[in-house]
Design a protein around this nucleic acid. Structure first.
Length: 814
DNA sequence: CAGTGAGCGAGCTTCCGCTTGACTT
């Protein structure tokens, strides 16, 4: 029997801490929350003071049993979950579920995993802060209310199985609105003028000086007039200014900034970054990767100092403490940094090595000196006009942190290739080599990437480090948003060049508006967003989260009763939900009438059907059943024309004959496909079924046939139900509806039936279909007795040490 | 997965934040 049991949230943390604490302490992990609102059902008793109905999820039952056992075998249980709202709630749920004895339970917190921090925590235990717990319960309950009342409205009004929520719906809104801004954007042209001048040094050496005019011209005529005025005039250096400048390093990584930089510098998706970081964390290489703090421990700052002193010298070091700017940051952890800054590299996969290096550099750079610059500006005047040419040169005097790391930026603005300016003096007359006026266009707003969407959400205080990646995944899974590429369009522009007193006009072309791996709203995303913003503007408001966070803060401070806060929100919200459900609109949400079919005269419309966007000829009231067709990918419902809609009814299209079978092309449940006899082949991504040719179809069919042939490896006469097949994840055995992995290093071709049967016996069967097995109807569970819980809550507060806790007890008891 | 789609209608879907593995045909 051990004396002490410490419970933390993460197993990796548990392992580290156990080392610090010695053999009198056993350290276990709760793996996050151990109890939550019941997964099914609403599970909030609104009428009874928003009483939550909690359950231990099935996959946590075993863990909870083990924790219970260990707790009862210990003298003291130390609840050491994070020091934020969620962490406090985890401690409280543990206390409740494990049935801990208040006399033998202590709550401790620490922000950094160092021996000193932990020993200090042990010396200064406190009680569970019920105000903070109540703030978490309010947060949890509010999210459940919003999600579980809003989603069914969408099922009814738009399409089944859709979802809405405080975080995801705003994420979708950002993307829809950005797309609208892009659509509404009209580029404006202006002529940018650049002159190349020759500077002659005292020794006769010549060098070129590039300078830009301090004015842009709206029209070609104006630009031309300016160039004409440059034909016979002197260019004189009127002024040379030299100013010192400096650059400072960025703060150490948080989850959000790590995701952004890994995307820009390494090309990782947000979820990729998180899983690589998770590995680094588990291997003890970095601190916790889900954090909103930019804080570094004293230990880390000192190690960085030593490292910089020894490898680069004292001049490169500067002590820095960064302030967290993110709205609603809870700072339960440190910034993301290497656990040992002396290690510049670690072992691991290529991805892990690269991400570690990035984290190491960013952390070291954050404790380094500013880079010092010298910026020189030369102004060149001409007699004929008041405009000036300006040449800018920038020289790095001291590299400082730039020696290690420079943060990337999202906008790929025109590169300013400013270097050192040639030696010149005021009054010097320059020879002009040429002057060009180039037509340039203003840039449309940029589409969001996964990482830039995360940055925006963080800026708005929406979502938490642990949910950024899952949120990005959710909005894509729900098919509100798609990650994709967009080909640019060609645009021509005019270049006027003045050289040797002659003006030459050229027309050049450039590609504009191309995008890679950016987020686009889908038709469903647009329709759902418009419906929600119109009917639930309050929830969809960008400041909704920030506003409720203020309330949660008041609850945590003990200044606001959580039930009253929820009540204030729920009344108006629920009324809006009811009226929205009752509202009978003329048309289905998102439906647009496009005109009439020239053949039949029937109305043609586009709307969201049960299976997604579709076009329809005829109306449901007609005697005759309307014709339907799924919308082809990449066509926007908002911009669709009658002509485009009618095109959908040209499918299925017969392409021709091949090996005595007809080949047709059509759009189905899983997108466009080619049909050849009984064989279905999906068209490749982005292909247009209207343009598919017979040859392309035959190619696809042959490829599919080949794949089918390769799929089959072997079969046994004695057991027709068993097949050895080749799948996406390598060879496997299919046997009576289940699949079995073949152990690594086994050649599937030489497997005998006996060997196959052994593999099958040793592995649990996996269902071939992802389809959930029909849930057996459980008898309605009797409502959890909540009275018992209540009394425990009161006990947790351990006699009124602070007035805060007493107040909280009252509110919970209500 | 399978290449549809109202109509009769039961029963299903859904949230955000804490945490990891298990596992994909």
């Amino acid at each position: 029997m051990q004396k002490n049991l410490v419970i933390v949230e993460s197993p990796a943390k548990a392992k580290t801490i156990e080392k610090f604490l010695g053999k009198d302490f056993k350290v276990m992990s709760s793996y996050g929350h151990i109890r939550d609102l019941k997964k099914k059902d609403f599970s909030i008793d609104i009428a009874n003071g928003f009483q939550p109905i909690y359950e231990v999820p099935a996959d946590k039952k075993k863990l909870v049993e083990e924790l219970k056992k260990q707790a009862s075998d210990s003298d003291i249980v130390w609840l050491a979950s994070d020091e934020d709202r969620e962490g406090e709630a985890i401690a409280w749920h543990l206390y409740e579920v494990l049935g801990l004895n208040p006399e033998h339970t202590k709550r401790i917190v620490f922000h950094e995993i160092t021996k000193n921090a932990i020993l200090h925590a042990i010396e200064t235990p406190r009680d569970i802060d019920l105000n903070l717990v109540n703030a978490q319960q309010a947060r949890r309950i509010l999210d459940r209310i919003v999600g579980f009342e809003l989603s069914p409205v969408l099922w009814r009004k738009v399409k089944p199985a859709l979802s809405a929520g405080r975080v995801q719906s705003v994420a979708v809104r950002l993307i829809v609105e950005r797309e609208r801004e892009i659509q509404a954007f009209t580029p404006e042209a202006a002529y940018r003028v650049i002159g190349i001048f020759i500077v002659t040094a005292a020794n006769g050496d010549k060098s070129e000086l590039k300078a830009e005019l301090n004015k842009r011209f709206k029209t070609k005529e104006e630009a031309e007039a300016f160039l004409n005025s440059c034909k016979s005039t002197d260019f004189v250096i009127e002024d040379i200014q030299t100013r010192p400048g400096k650059k400072s390093p960025a703060a150490p990584f948080t989850t959000s900034t790590l995701q952004q930089e890994a995307a820009r510098k390494l090309g990782y998706s947000v979820s990729q970054t998180m899983s690589v970081a998770q590995k680094l964390y588990e291997n003890g290489h970095i601190t916790y990767m889900r954090t909103d703090s930019v804080n570094l421990s004293d230990l880390a700052i000192n190690t960085a100092k030593e490292e910089i002193f020894s490898t680069m010298g004292e001049r490169y070091w500067k002590y820095r403490q960064f302030q967290t700017k993110a709205k609603g940051a809870q700072e339960a952890h440190e910034a993301i940094r290497p656990t040992d800054l002396k290690k510049e590299k670690v072992e691991g996969t290529a991805q892990e090595k690269k991400l570690y290096e990035l984290i190491w550099k960013r952390t070291i750079a954050s404790q380094m000196a500013d880079a010092e610059l010298e910026k020189t500006t030369a102004t060149i005047g001409l007699a004929t006009t008041s405009e000036k040419f300006v040449a800018v040169g920038e020289v790095l005097k001291f590299d400082g942190f730039l020696r290690v790391y420079l943060e990337s930026s999202d906008d790929e603005s025109e590169s300013s290739d400013s270097g050192l300016l040639p030696p010149m003096k005021v009054g010097e007359v320059l020879n002009m080599k040429n002057i060009t006026a180039t037509e340039r266009f203003t840039q449309r707003p940029a589409r969001y990437s996964e990482a830039s969407l995360v940055r925006k959400l963080e800026e708005l205080g929406i979502g938490r480090p642990s949910t950024y990646a899952p949120t990005i995944t959710t909005v894509q899974n729900r098919e509100y948003v798609e990650k994709g590429d967009k080909e640019g369009t060609e645009r021509s522009f005019t270049v006027l060049t003045l050289s040797k007193d002659k003006i030459k006009e050229q027309t050049k072309t450039e590609i504009t508006g191309a995008d890679k791996a950016k987020l686009f709203p889908t038709n469903i995303g647009v329709v759902v967003n418009d419906y929600l913003t119109e009917n639930f503007p309050n929830i969809l408001n960008y400041s909704f989260t920030a506003d409720v966070e203020k309330e949660f803060d008041s609850i945590a401070e003990g200044d606001l009763n959580w039930v009253q806060a929820l009540d204030k929100f729920y009344g108006p919200f629920h009324t809006t939900v009811e009226t929205s459900l009752a509202a009978k609109q003329e048309r289905k949400v998102g439906e647009r009438l496009l005109g009439n079919d020239p053949k039949t005269g029937k109305p043609v419309s586009v709307k969201i059907g049960r299976f997604g966007p579709m076009v329809q000829i005829g109306s449901n009231e007609d005697e005759e059943k309307p014709q339907f067709a799924s919308l082809m990918k990449g066509i926007s419902m908002e911009e669709m024309t009658l002509e485009q809609a009618l095109k959908h009814f040209e499918l299925p299209r017969t392409l021709g004959e091949y090996e005595n079978e007809t080949i047709t092309v059509a759009v189905g449940r899983f997108g466009p496909y080619v049909k050849f006899g009984k064989l279905f082949v999906s068209l490749p991504k982005g292909a247009n079924p209207m343009e598919t040719t017979l040859d392309e179809a035959i190619e696809l069919i042959e490829a599919k046939k080949k794949q089918e042939a390769e799929k089959f490896i072997k079969k046994f006469d004695e057991e027709p139900e068993l097949e050895v097949l080749n799948g996406r994840f390598g060879p496997y055995i299919a046997y009576s509806g289940s699949n079995y992995k073949i152990p690594k290093g086994t050649d599937p071709k030489v497997l005998t039936l006996d060997e196959c049967m052994t593999i099958i016996k040793d592995q649990p069967a996996k269902k071939t279909t992802a389809r959930k097995t029909k849930a057996v109807k459980e008898p309605k569970a009797t409502k959890e007795p909540k009275a018992a819980k209540e009394s425990k809550v009161a006990k947790t507060a351990k006699e009124p040490k602070a007035t805060k806790t007493t107040k909280a007890t009252k509110t919970t008891k209500k």
